[in-house]
Amino acid sequence: MSPVSRPLKPGIYAPIPTFFLPGSEDLDLQALEAHVVRVAQAGVSPLLAGTMGEALHLTHDERITVIKTARRALDAAGFETVPITVGTGTGSTRETIALCTEASEAGADYAIVITSGYFAGVLANNRKAVKAFYEEVSEKSPIPVVIYNYPGASGGIDLDSDLITELATECPNLAGVKLTCGNVGKLTRICATVSQPSFATSYPRRNPDAPFLVLGGFTDFILSAAYVNGHGAITGLANVSPFTIAKLFELSEASLKDSSLLPEAQRVQGIVACADFTIAKAGIAGTKALLEKLYGYGGNPRKPLPPIEPEDAAALWEHPHTQELVELERALGGKFS
């Protein structure tokens, strides 16, 4: 039987939280199964063991368990063609490659790799070393690799548009970049090269199912990104309101061909941008608290990350930005338990 094709497509990807049982902090696989199916039902693809998934707090064996559990849940629910992307970035090049291999063997389709930031004092000013990291990882990974540019979690290292574009043209197993730097100008400059129709023929990918995508790390510029030929976003807010974020992407793309849809796209983008600004400040614990309120699962982060204070969770839930997003999600078909 031939393997199932799961292309990496423009759209919305949700960095799935890793859920833990109260007290023991063991993996809560039942909550994970429910959540990956919930986001898939909205047309959102899961990303496991990323920042939101507390990858730093997971053992290698736990990562494998998370991947296998998510794949089984998606397949059982009829989402066999939904791809799974997994965070595999860690301290050394060697271990990062090992994690890519383990993820592939467990059922992952794509990897996303953050720049190693522990020795940022050395690497931040050594462009050659940073470039060599992504060259070697992508060359040796058995699955396509997405660059994860997140200065806040990599010691302040911030890849510029020239370096990302170079990597895109020179490394055929790179499948995109996530810009959690939030730099729309950088996104525009990268898209000016990689989103041209000639790019795919001039710089073919090793895996034809994995074109080079330029993805935002927040939801507040999905509409703007569409107009410079961006490809969507990987965003934590898609855990809370997957139908809304998927709808925003759909409207943004459709408005390129039908300008009458632009006012509605702008309206939804405004609601989403305000909610993202408010909810992102509450971090992983805040997102989990909202999931608990909406869906009945969420729990706390793994220590030493602290849970959100009860009064802060109540304020986050009651905030007008949150409530407007929840109302829109409900109107678009999101079901709350």
Score class of each variant (00 low, 15 high):
M1V: 15
S2A: 11
P7N: 12
P10R: 13
G11Q: 12
P22H: 05
P22T: 10
D26R: 10
D28I: 11
A31E: 08
H35M: 06
A40G: 07
T51Q: 08
M52P: 00
M52A: 15
G53T: 14
H57A: 15
H57V: 12
L58E: 03
E62H: 02
I64V: 15
K68M: 14
K68P: 01
R71Q: 04
A76L: 13
V82R: 02
V82L: 04
I84T: 08
G87F: 09
G91T: 13
T96Y: 05
A98D: 13
A106R: 05
I112Q: 04
V113C: 10
F119N: 13
V130E: 05
A132I: 06
F133G: 08
E135K: 05
S138H: 01
E139A: 15
V146Q: 04
G152E: 12
S161Q: 10
D162P: 00
L163T: 14
L174S: 04
V177R: 02
L179I: 13
N183W: 08
L187C: 10
I190V: 15
I190L: 07
C191F: 03
A192N: 09
S195P: 01
S198F: 11
F199V: 09
T201M: 09
S202W: 04
Y203G: 04
D209V: 04
A210I: 14
T219M: 05
T219A: 15
T219I: 06
F221R: 11
A225T: 11
L237A: 02
T244P: 03
I245W: 04
S252A: 15
S252P: 05
A254G: 08
L261D: 07
E264V: 13
A265R: 01
Q266K: 14
A273M: 05
A273W: 01
C274Y: 05
D276E: 15
A282V: 04
G283H: 00
I284L: 08
L290D: 10
L294F: 00
L294A: 08
P307W: 03
A313R: 02
A314W: 00
H319V: 12
E324Q: 14
L328F: 06
L328I: 11
S337H: 04
